[in-house]
Design a protein around this nucleic acid. Structure first.
Lengths: 249, 249
DNA sequence: CGACGCGTTGAGTAGCCTCAACGACAGTGG
DNA sequence: CCACTGTCGTTGAGGCTACTCAACGCGTCG
């Protein structure tokens, strides 16, 4: 079950979306993906305040991370997809700062924080690409900040759906306009700062206008151009500028 | 004017807030801080869409970065203080994704992106600390997301002020409860997703209740405990867990 | 002195929230 | 196989927060 060089893991696949890796670099990365483990749907993987000593590579499935306010209000911070390293944002802290739970059945590989050392030491190029991927995430947080700070309910919902679609396309370049969407409307609401009621209204309105269609746990984007325009969506993936990267080691 | 090892630059000072550096590491960092340049108040330093080929170390002064929506709505993304590297979030992109402008007179040192290579290559420890500092920023973006998504006007304003105060204390450990605050109420509003009117009301109310006081461009925090409680504020600075860091090179 | 930026205050409005009820559906246990 | 239960999404009524629009005072700067 230990990934070998010939079986491309989700993480390697994601990194190679940006940069062709050498065998040695793939090898370094695969050290993060030993010991995959299954988690079933709706399982809390990390609870806030526990020791932040390990990180996870998502091999398959969807997860969400979120924080709670003392009064129970919830903010969904991130959706984790295959290829994501989840727990990175707790790297600097002794305790985790948010909860992580599975939305679907998942396969995760855990690794300790110091497993990053060999990467930092072994390949400046890999370090640069990891750094860049973190900065892409940061750009996305900024985009979301803009969405939450300055956009209305419909725009927020649209933006979130487009962002999800874009992220899915990183690992599935052939993905069209239909995708699984295992979040409840309450999850979505907690992600974009609304209530489930407003999300329901917004989605209903968009379906009414023929912009999208829902069936089961799937979304069908019918008018992506309109959606991008409306939510002023910028795709942060697939634009990595590697011109400044160090030479291959 | 070129910083030497004996003159501690803002960046080195900030990094050393977390980690005692070796002479070699200080030397690596100081390479980012050559050629400081003056900028006067209210100057656009970076305009959105320009080539993202250089980054800046803030030596002195305050800056804000922000994005605009097509209709003119604005979202302030970040306040930059001395010691910050500004432009990092555009690292992965060919063009900058937001504007940066000075709020006060500033001194900035520019450096090209590939000036990071020697750091990645020269010190795994320095790489780890830079990585961690970026992740602290990310934790703060998540906190802000929670604020924007789930908190009301008063809570938002309080949170922003506390966060500003905390960041100032990183470089000025002796800082008490009074600090310069060169943002207009519109700047603050654009940072937390409100209007200047709501910010004015919120601040007025807080002053009324004796929680804080304003005079000139300064804020005096009178009841910090109450503020922390109300805004559920968590200080992300000064908790760096370096237990997993690589050994000194 | 006039122009402008900034902060304050008031009146009216709109968008989203709260509360609530209901139908559809899946999972569970008898 | 079928009631029972809980989750999820939808819809409606009413309320509240923050918004828009506007006027005004103050200080700064040309």
């Amino acid at each position: 079950m230990v990934p070998t060089e010939s079986v491309k893991s989700a993480l390697i696949q994601k990194v190679e979306h940006y940069l062709q890796l050498t065998a040695q670099e793939r090898n370094l990365l695969s050290q993060l993906e030993t010991s995959p483990r299954q988690y079933s749907r709706n399982t809390e993987v990390v609870s806030s305040g526990s020791p932040a000593d390990q990180l996870f590579v998502v091999q398959s499935g969807w997860l969400i991370s979120y924080t709670l306010l003392p009064d129970g209000r919830r903010q969904v911070l991130q959706i984790h997809f295959p290829g994501d390293i989840c727990g990175l944002s707790d790297l600097p802290f002794a305790q985790t700062t948010h909860e992580v739970k599975t939305l679907t059945d998942c396969t995760l590989s855990a690794f300790p924080r110091d497993a990053l050392d060999p990467i930092f030491r072994g390949s400046a190029r890999l370090t640069a690409v990891m750094f860049s991927m973190v900065m892409i995430d940061q750009a996305i947080y900024m985009d979301r900040l803009r969405v939450m700070g300055r956009m209305n309910a419909r725009e927020r919902v649209i933006h979130f759906l487009l962002s999800t679609l874009s992220r899915l396309r990183v690992l599935s370049p052939g993905l069209g306009t239909v995708f699984d969407f295992p979040l409840t409307q309450t999850d979505l609401a907690d992600a974009v700062g609304l209530t489930n009621v407003s999300v329901s209204n917004a989605l209903g309105m968009l379906q009414e206008k023929g912009v999208l269609k829902r069936s089961g746990g799937r979304i069908h984007v019918l008018n992506e151009a309109y959606m991008r325009e409306t939510a002023n969506f910028i795709d942060r993936y697939g634009e990595l500028d590697i011109s400044w990267f160090p030479e291959r080691a």
